[in-house]
Design a protein around this nucleic acid. Structure first.
Lengths: 143, 143
DNA sequence: CATCATCAATTGATATATCATTGTACTGTC
DNA sequence: GACAGTACAATGATATATCAATTGATGATG
Protein backbone atom coordinates (compact mmCIF):
# COMPACT_ATOMS: atom_id res chain seq x y z
CA UNK A 1 0.00 0.00 0.00
CA UNK A 2 2.71 2.45 0.88
CA UNK A 3 5.04 1.27 -1.84
CA UNK A 4 5.08 4.29 -4.07
CA UNK A 5 6.44 2.24 -6.93
CA UNK A 6 3.00 0.72 -7.26
CA UNK A 7 1.25 4.06 -7.46
CA UNK A 8 1.39 5.33 -10.99
CA UNK A 9 1.12 8.97 -9.97
CA UNK A 10 4.52 8.79 -8.41
CA UNK A 11 5.94 7.29 -11.55
CA UNK A 12 4.58 10.29 -13.38
CA UNK A 13 6.01 12.64 -10.81
CA UNK A 14 9.36 10.95 -10.90
CA UNK A 15 9.45 11.00 -14.68
CA UNK A 16 8.75 14.68 -15.02
CA UNK A 17 11.22 15.46 -12.26
CA UNK A 18 13.88 13.37 -13.95
CA UNK A 19 13.21 15.11 -17.24
CA UNK A 20 13.38 18.56 -15.70
CA UNK A 21 16.70 17.82 -14.06
CA UNK A 22 17.99 16.45 -17.32
CA UNK A 23 16.86 19.57 -19.15
CA UNK A 24 18.43 21.82 -16.55
CA UNK A 25 21.73 19.96 -16.74
CA UNK A 26 21.71 20.44 -20.48
CA UNK A 27 21.10 24.15 -20.19
CA UNK A 28 23.90 24.53 -17.68
CA UNK A 29 26.22 22.42 -19.80
CA UNK A 30 25.53 24.72 -22.72
CA UNK A 31 26.55 27.69 -20.62
CA UNK A 32 23.08 29.09 -20.10
CA UNK A 33 22.12 30.61 -16.78
CA UNK A 34 18.40 30.27 -17.44
CA UNK A 35 16.22 27.95 -15.46
CA UNK A 36 13.93 25.68 -17.43
CA UNK A 37 10.94 27.68 -16.27
CA UNK A 38 12.50 30.96 -17.27
CA UNK A 39 13.19 29.56 -20.70
CA UNK A 40 9.56 28.57 -21.00
CA UNK A 41 8.41 32.08 -20.26
CA UNK A 42 10.85 33.63 -22.70
CA UNK A 43 9.61 31.23 -25.30
CA UNK A 44 6.03 32.33 -24.81
CA UNK A 45 7.06 35.96 -25.06
CA UNK A 46 8.78 35.31 -28.32
CA UNK A 47 5.77 33.55 -29.76
CA UNK A 48 3.29 36.15 -28.52
CA UNK A 49 4.93 39.53 -28.12
CA UNK A 50 2.95 42.00 -26.05
CA UNK A 51 1.12 39.30 -24.10
CA UNK A 52 -0.07 40.02 -20.57
CA UNK A 53 1.20 38.25 -17.50
CA UNK A 54 -2.00 36.47 -16.73
CA UNK A 55 -2.02 34.94 -20.17
CA UNK A 56 1.58 33.85 -19.84
CA UNK A 57 0.59 32.08 -16.66
CA UNK A 58 -2.14 30.25 -18.53
CA UNK A 59 0.21 29.26 -21.34
CA UNK A 60 2.77 27.67 -19.07
CA UNK A 61 0.27 26.26 -16.56
CA UNK A 62 1.60 28.30 -13.71
CA UNK A 63 0.20 30.59 -11.08
CA UNK A 64 -0.08 34.32 -11.78
CA UNK A 65 1.97 35.09 -8.71
CA UNK A 66 4.76 32.79 -9.85
CA UNK A 67 4.84 34.49 -13.21
CA UNK A 68 4.92 37.93 -11.63
CA UNK A 69 8.01 36.96 -9.70
CA UNK A 70 9.65 35.25 -12.61
CA UNK A 71 9.08 38.32 -14.73
CA UNK A 72 10.66 40.44 -11.99
CA UNK A 73 13.80 38.35 -12.28
CA UNK A 74 13.76 38.36 -16.06
CA UNK A 75 13.40 42.14 -16.08
CA UNK A 76 16.31 42.40 -13.66
CA UNK A 77 18.32 40.23 -16.00
CA UNK A 78 17.37 42.58 -18.83
CA UNK A 79 15.80 39.82 -20.85
CA UNK A 80 12.24 41.10 -20.62
CA UNK A 81 10.52 44.50 -20.66
CA UNK A 82 7.25 45.51 -19.09
CA UNK A 83 5.36 48.09 -21.13
CA UNK A 84 2.42 49.92 -19.59
CA UNK A 85 0.00 51.09 -22.29
CA UNK A 86 -1.42 54.57 -21.82
CA UNK A 87 -5.01 53.61 -22.56
CA UNK A 88 -5.35 50.83 -20.01
CA UNK A 89 -2.65 50.90 -17.43
CA UNK A 90 -3.72 47.66 -15.86
CA UNK A 91 -2.86 45.41 -18.75
CA UNK A 92 0.91 45.49 -18.78
CA UNK A 93 2.32 44.08 -21.96
CA UNK A 94 5.47 41.98 -21.89
CA UNK A 95 8.15 41.63 -24.50
CA UNK A 96 11.67 40.38 -25.00
CA UNK A 97 14.59 42.75 -25.08
CA UNK A 98 17.22 42.29 -27.74
CA UNK A 99 19.27 40.37 -25.20
CA UNK A 100 16.25 38.23 -24.46
CA UNK A 101 15.73 37.41 -28.11
CA UNK A 102 19.37 36.45 -28.43
CA UNK A 103 19.12 34.08 -25.47
CA UNK A 104 16.04 32.40 -26.86
CA UNK A 105 17.76 31.88 -30.17
CA UNK A 106 20.84 30.45 -28.53
CA UNK A 107 18.93 28.05 -26.37
CA UNK A 108 16.33 26.88 -28.88
CA UNK A 109 18.47 24.24 -30.56
CA UNK A 110 19.64 22.90 -27.22
CA UNK A 111 16.07 22.46 -26.16
CA UNK A 112 15.12 20.75 -29.40
CA UNK A 113 18.04 18.42 -28.84
CA UNK A 114 17.27 17.30 -25.37
CA UNK A 115 13.61 16.90 -26.07
CA UNK A 116 14.47 14.62 -28.91
CA UNK A 117 16.89 12.65 -26.81
CA UNK A 118 14.38 12.20 -24.01
CA UNK A 119 11.96 10.66 -26.49
CA UNK A 120 14.47 8.44 -28.23
CA UNK A 121 12.97 5.07 -29.01
CA UNK A 122 9.49 6.15 -28.02
CA UNK A 123 7.07 5.56 -30.86
CA UNK A 124 4.56 8.17 -31.97
CA UNK A 125 1.76 5.85 -30.96
CA UNK A 126 3.15 5.57 -27.48
CA UNK A 127 3.29 9.33 -27.15
CA UNK A 128 -0.30 9.54 -28.32
CA UNK A 129 -1.36 6.90 -25.81
CA UNK A 130 0.49 8.68 -23.05
CA UNK A 131 -1.21 11.91 -23.91
CA UNK A 132 -4.61 10.27 -24.05
CA UNK A 133 -4.25 8.56 -20.70
CA UNK A 134 -3.02 11.73 -19.06
CA UNK A 135 -5.93 13.67 -20.51
CA UNK A 136 -8.30 11.17 -19.03
CA UNK A 137 -6.67 11.51 -15.63
CA UNK A 138 -6.89 15.28 -15.83
CA UNK A 139 -10.55 15.07 -16.73
CA UNK A 140 -11.12 12.81 -13.74
CA UNK A 141 -9.51 15.39 -11.50
CA UNK A 142 -11.94 18.09 -12.54
CA UNK A 143 -14.67 16.97 -10.21
CA UNK B 1 7.32 24.98 -32.13
CA UNK B 2 6.48 27.10 -29.17
CA UNK B 3 3.03 25.64 -28.74
CA UNK B 4 3.44 23.78 -25.53
CA UNK B 5 0.40 21.70 -26.26
CA UNK B 6 2.43 19.88 -28.84
CA UNK B 7 5.24 19.04 -26.44
CA UNK B 8 4.34 15.94 -24.51
CA UNK B 9 6.49 16.87 -21.51
CA UNK B 10 4.18 19.73 -20.75
CA UNK B 11 1.21 17.45 -20.92
CA UNK B 12 2.94 15.32 -18.33
CA UNK B 13 3.71 18.32 -16.21
CA UNK B 14 0.20 19.60 -16.47
CA UNK B 15 -1.26 16.23 -15.61
CA UNK B 16 0.76 15.75 -12.47
CA UNK B 17 0.08 19.32 -11.40
CA UNK B 18 -3.64 18.84 -11.96
CA UNK B 19 -3.55 15.64 -9.96
CA UNK B 20 -1.66 17.22 -7.08
CA UNK B 21 -4.11 20.09 -6.86
CA UNK B 22 -6.97 17.64 -6.94
CA UNK B 23 -5.39 15.61 -4.17
CA UNK B 24 -4.76 18.69 -2.09
CA UNK B 25 -8.35 19.86 -2.50
CA UNK B 26 -9.52 16.50 -1.29
CA UNK B 27 -7.31 16.62 1.77
CA UNK B 28 -8.53 20.10 2.63
CA UNK B 29 -12.14 19.09 2.03
CA UNK B 30 -11.69 16.24 4.46
CA UNK B 31 -10.47 18.67 7.10
CA UNK B 32 -6.83 17.72 6.97
CA UNK B 33 -4.16 20.36 7.28
CA UNK B 34 -1.48 18.17 5.74
CA UNK B 35 0.08 18.94 2.40
CA UNK B 36 0.26 16.11 -0.09
CA UNK B 37 4.00 15.94 0.37
CA UNK B 38 3.74 15.82 4.12
CA UNK B 39 1.32 12.98 3.85
CA UNK B 40 3.76 11.11 1.67
CA UNK B 41 6.47 11.43 4.26
CA UNK B 42 4.22 10.33 7.08
CA UNK B 43 3.24 7.35 5.01
CA UNK B 44 6.86 6.32 4.58
CA UNK B 45 7.45 6.68 8.29
CA UNK B 46 4.53 4.44 9.04
CA UNK B 47 5.75 1.79 6.65
CA UNK B 48 9.35 1.94 7.83
CA UNK B 49 9.55 3.14 11.41
CA UNK B 50 13.01 4.25 12.47
CA UNK B 51 14.11 5.11 8.95
CA UNK B 52 16.71 7.83 8.40
CA UNK B 53 16.06 11.08 6.59
CA UNK B 54 18.24 10.32 3.62
CA UNK B 55 16.31 7.14 2.99
CA UNK B 56 13.01 8.93 3.24
CA UNK B 57 14.25 11.31 0.59
CA UNK B 58 15.04 8.38 -1.68
CA UNK B 59 11.63 6.82 -1.09
CA UNK B 60 9.69 9.89 -2.07
CA UNK B 61 12.07 11.06 -4.82
CA UNK B 62 12.93 14.27 -3.09
CA UNK B 63 16.04 16.10 -2.09
CA UNK B 64 17.55 15.46 1.32
CA UNK B 65 17.40 19.14 2.12
CA UNK B 66 13.71 19.27 1.31
CA UNK B 67 13.08 16.34 3.60
CA UNK B 68 15.07 17.92 6.39
CA UNK B 69 12.83 20.97 6.26
CA UNK B 70 9.67 18.97 5.94
CA UNK B 71 10.64 16.93 8.96
CA UNK B 72 11.27 20.16 10.86
CA UNK B 73 7.69 21.17 10.21
CA UNK B 74 6.31 17.74 11.01
CA UNK B 75 8.20 17.72 14.29
CA UNK B 76 6.82 21.16 15.10
CA UNK B 77 3.36 19.83 14.35
CA UNK B 78 4.08 16.96 16.76
CA UNK B 79 3.44 14.35 14.10
CA UNK B 80 7.00 13.10 13.91
CA UNK B 81 9.83 12.47 16.36
CA UNK B 82 13.53 12.55 15.73
CA UNK B 83 15.36 10.00 17.85
CA UNK B 84 19.11 10.31 18.14
CA UNK B 85 20.63 6.93 18.99
CA UNK B 86 23.37 7.02 21.62
CA UNK B 87 25.77 4.82 19.72
CA UNK B 88 25.78 6.71 16.41
CA UNK B 89 24.47 10.18 16.76
CA UNK B 90 24.59 10.92 13.07
CA UNK B 91 21.94 8.53 11.98
CA UNK B 92 18.86 10.11 13.40
CA UNK B 93 15.92 7.78 13.29
CA UNK B 94 12.47 9.08 12.50
CA UNK B 95 9.15 7.87 13.74
CA UNK B 96 5.54 8.86 13.99
CA UNK B 97 4.10 10.16 17.21
CA UNK B 98 0.75 8.85 18.33
CA UNK B 99 -0.81 11.94 16.81
CA UNK B 100 1.06 11.23 13.59
CA UNK B 101 -0.21 7.68 13.44
CA UNK B 102 -3.72 8.89 13.98
CA UNK B 103 -3.45 11.37 11.11
CA UNK B 104 -2.13 8.75 8.75
CA UNK B 105 -5.00 6.46 9.62
CA UNK B 106 -7.54 9.21 9.13
CA UNK B 107 -6.18 10.25 5.79
CA UNK B 108 -5.47 6.84 4.30
CA UNK B 109 -8.98 6.15 3.05
CA UNK B 110 -9.28 9.60 1.57
CA UNK B 111 -6.12 9.02 -0.39
CA UNK B 112 -7.28 5.65 -1.60
CA UNK B 113 -10.46 7.31 -2.73
CA UNK B 114 -9.02 10.09 -4.78
CA UNK B 115 -6.41 7.87 -6.35
CA UNK B 116 -9.19 5.61 -7.49
CA UNK B 117 -11.22 8.49 -8.82
CA UNK B 118 -8.31 9.92 -10.75
CA UNK B 119 -7.89 6.59 -12.51
CA UNK B 120 -11.54 6.02 -13.23
CA UNK B 121 -12.03 4.56 -16.67
CA UNK B 122 -8.34 4.02 -17.21
CA UNK B 123 -7.64 0.39 -18.05
CA UNK B 124 -4.89 -1.59 -16.41
CA UNK B 125 -3.19 -1.93 -19.76
CA UNK B 126 -3.15 1.81 -20.21
CA UNK B 127 -1.55 2.28 -16.83
CA UNK B 128 1.05 -0.31 -17.73
CA UNK B 129 1.76 1.42 -21.03
CA UNK B 130 2.01 4.77 -19.31
CA UNK B 131 4.48 3.36 -16.84
CA UNK B 132 6.52 1.75 -19.56
CA UNK B 133 6.75 4.88 -21.68
CA UNK B 134 7.70 6.98 -18.68
CA UNK B 135 10.36 4.50 -17.72
CA UNK B 136 11.81 4.74 -21.18
CA UNK B 137 11.90 8.52 -20.96
CA UNK B 138 13.59 8.37 -17.59
CA UNK B 139 16.19 5.99 -18.96
CA UNK B 140 16.81 8.38 -21.84
CA UNK B 141 17.42 11.17 -19.36
CA UNK B 142 20.17 9.28 -17.61
CA UNK B 143 22.81 10.14 -20.12
C1' DC C 1 -21.53 61.08 -11.35
C1' DA C 2 -20.80 58.18 -7.34
C1' DT C 3 -20.50 53.73 -5.99
C1' DC C 4 -19.76 48.99 -6.93
C1' DA C 5 -18.10 45.10 -9.22
C1' DT C 6 -14.38 43.41 -11.71
C1' DC C 7 -10.00 42.57 -13.48
C1' DA C 8 -4.75 42.68 -13.68
C1' DA C 9 -0.99 42.79 -11.05
C1' DT C 10 1.54 42.94 -6.70
C1' DT C 11 2.70 41.48 -2.19
C1' DG C 12 2.80 38.53 2.01
C1' DA C 13 3.09 34.17 4.02
C1' DT C 14 4.28 29.54 3.86
C1' DA C 15 5.93 25.27 1.59
C1' DT C 16 8.89 23.01 -1.46
C1' DA C 17 13.17 22.29 -4.89
C1' DT C 18 17.93 22.53 -5.59
C1' DC C 19 22.70 23.37 -5.09
C1' DA C 20 26.55 24.42 -2.33
C1' DT C 21 28.61 24.70 2.03
C1' DT C 22 29.33 23.51 6.62
C1' DG C 23 29.27 20.68 10.75
C1' DT C 24 29.60 16.51 13.15
C1' DA C 25 30.58 12.01 13.96
C1' DC C 26 31.98 7.70 12.55
C1' DT C 27 35.40 4.25 10.03
C1' DG C 28 39.29 2.54 8.06
C1' DT C 29 44.13 2.59 7.41
C1' DC C 30 48.45 3.04 8.70
C1' DG D 1 45.88 6.41 18.34
C1' DA D 2 46.30 10.28 14.57
C1' DC D 3 44.70 11.18 10.15
C1' DA D 4 42.04 11.13 6.04
C1' DG D 5 38.00 9.92 4.06
C1' DT D 6 33.12 9.34 4.30
C1' DA D 7 28.27 9.46 5.69
C1' DC D 8 24.34 12.01 7.42
C1' DA D 9 22.25 16.05 8.54
C1' DA D 10 21.69 21.21 8.97
C1' DT D 11 21.88 25.61 6.92
C1' DG D 12 22.16 29.42 3.41
C1' DA D 13 20.81 31.18 -0.83
C1' DT D 14 17.83 31.37 -4.57
C1' DA D 15 13.82 29.91 -7.39
C1' DT D 16 9.27 28.30 -7.70
C1' DA D 17 4.16 26.97 -6.01
C1' DT D 18 0.09 28.39 -3.87
C1' DC D 19 -3.35 30.85 -1.44
C1' DA D 20 -5.00 35.05 0.45
C1' DA D 21 -5.26 39.78 0.67
C1' DT D 22 -4.46 44.16 -1.34
C1' DT D 23 -3.75 47.75 -4.67
C1' DG D 24 -4.76 50.27 -8.80
C1' DA D 25 -7.46 51.11 -12.62
C1' DT D 26 -11.47 50.49 -15.50
C1' DG D 27 -16.22 49.73 -16.59
C1' DA D 28 -21.07 49.29 -15.35
C1' DT D 29 -25.20 50.61 -12.94
C1' DG D 30 -28.07 53.01 -10.51
Amino acid sequence: MSDLGSVVFYTIERAIKTYRQFAQRRLVAAGSTLTVDQWLVLNVLEAEPGIQQGLVAARVFKDKASIARMVDLLVQAELVERKVPANDRRSVSLGLTRKGRRQVAEVATIVEDYRKQALRGVKAGEVAALRSTLNRIMANCDE
